[in-house]
Amino acid sequence: MTQASYKYIGNVLDRNTRGWLPVVDEHSNKFYLPLLTKVEKLENANLFVMEGIHKGKTIAVDHKRIKPNIYSSYLFNSFTYAEGANLKLILKTSILQFPTQEEKVMCEGILPGVYKILLPDRPHEKKMQEDYYDESNSSGSRFCTTWFPIDTPQHNQYLHMGEYSTGCVTVLDNWQRIYLSLIHSRELESVIGTLTVVEE
């Protein structure tokens, strides 16, 4: 019996890939995996997705959709995740508290409770304005298309950056730092951490 060879999606921090690795599955379906997704390397150079919404799929890196190539490989051989992120949202003040910082957010439609923050599902490009990508100011980020799903009963609620909220928790500033701290955290497979929502 051979030991499983786990790898991690890496080297997609540049402004071209923006935290997403283009992949293709055995049925030629094209999609993306977020940075640091755990995968298992199969014998034929294919990968088996271990977490996220594409868990259980056999995929290959779609090199044609990565231009320019800056790395010879887009996999880390090993990676040590940080502990699961614990976030607290105070609805009355619209403050989202992180262990070391707090951010002003917009939040409408989210109810008090304890929710899981999940691994990002797909790049959310449609609602992105050009200035969201502009890193010359602290509110812009190359990772603005990464939205973290919040596992609420309503579904379709995310933690993301932006300027308006339609039922999500919308961060107004410092998304780059928030993204980097969340993406390398794991509470469990597919789970980034916990969001506790309180009235005040």
């Binding site: 890496g10 921090l13 540049d14 402004r15 071209n16 940075l35 640091l36 800056i70 880390f76 051989n77 090993s78 990676f79 040590t80 890193e135 190359r142 780059q176 730092r177 980097l180 993406i183 390398h184």
Partner: peptide, 18 residues
């Protein structure tokens, strides 16, 4: 360099293969 790696990660061996 900033195109390849976010400003926040310059000078750090952060989010690299461990």
């Amino acid at each position: 360099i900033t195109f390849i790696l976010p400003q926040e990660l310059h000078g750090y061996n952060y989010l690299r293969e461990s």
